[in-house]
């Protein structure tokens, strides 16, 4: 199994958010540049929203990875839903202040004013839809006080769009929407990922028919694509070990892609 042709590609598609695995796709690269330039503007809040699996978290991690070299950027990829905890952690990480008393918004703003950085620190909040409305209101007030610049990601659903409207629409902020990948973008994503890891043989096995099938099954969702391809290469690993005669090295088998989709739950059979 260790020397399998398909084990390395399989591991490439493990669904983990790692900025080093970031794959440059034209549309996302454009969004990323616009996000980076927005961060440099005197905006209070930047909203990054889109359907699940459109690459919001990856983009946020990439931004954190790139900006952290030059300025104070803090990443909160796991939401802290308790308001007191949230303000306490924020004060601790940004201002290096560990309060013993209960952290209120007023107290937090006092600390922020006392520290007063020349460059406004940036806080990246992933999965912001999990925060309560009152906490979101506090986040808005903090950003209004211009002590912290927030970049938040939201899932684009009806409910979450209401949150976005209620809390942020009247504020000075920028919103960037991410869309699901097209078949062409998905092809670039898969092949770039494979080529980056020197999996040339496997990259060449993807033809347009295979890509179309993957795109139709995952609907351009990067997370689902990763899951599907992980299962697919797991299948290939199994066949390589147990029945190698069935493997065609010039193209991927549609049947096995569908079997992987059944395994990941993309097809209900």
């Amino acid at each position: 199994m260790e020397h399998s042709l398909f084990s390395k590609p399989r591991d490439l598609f493990l669904d983990v958010v790692n900025p080093k695995d970031y794959v440059q796709i034209d549309s996302i690269a454009h969004i990323y540049q616009s996000l980076k330039s927005s961060v440099q503007k005197p905006l209070k809040m930047i909203l990054l929203f889109g359907r699940p699996g459109t690459g919001k978290s990856m983009l946020l991690h990439k931004l954190h990875h790139d900006l952290s070299k030059h300025q104070k950027v803090f990443m909160f990829d796991i939401p802290i839903v308790d308001e007191d905890d949230f303000l306490r952690v924020l004060a601790e990480r940004i201002f290096a202040y560990s309060p013993r008393e209960t952290m209120t918004l007023t107290r937090f703003l006092e600390i922020a004013e006392a520290v007063s950085y020349t460059d406004v620190p940036i806080v990246l909040l992933d999965e912001a839809q999990l925060y309560s409305s009152s906490l979101m209101e506090k986040i808005r007030l903090i950003s209004d006080a211009r002590v912290i610049k927030f970049v938040i990601t939201l899932h684009k659903t009806d409910k979450e769009e209401i949150i976005a409207k209620e809390h942020f629409q009247t504020r000075i902020w920028e919103s960037i929407e991410l869309h699901n990948a097209t078949a062409e973008e998905l092809k670039i994503y898969i092949q770039k990922k494979l080529l980056k890891a020197n999996c040339f043989d496997v990259a060449n096995m993807f033809n347009d028919k295979n890509i179309k099938l993957v795109a139709s099954l995952t609907k351009g969702n990067f997370r689902e694509t990763n899951k599907l391809l992980f299962s697919l290469f797991s299948l290939y690993c199994w066949y390589e070990e147990n029945n190698p005669a069935l493997i065609q090295y010039n193209a991927l088998k549609s049947k096995w892609i569908e079997m992987a989709a059944i395994h990941t739950g993309l097809i209900h059979a």
């Binding site: 299948l235 079997m259 059944i262 395994h263």
Partner: peptide, 10 residues
């Protein structure tokens, strides 16, 4: 992976 089961479901 349970390949036999997957093939049957496919």
């Amino acid at each position: 992976l349970n390949i036999q089961n997957l093939e049957r479901r496919w």
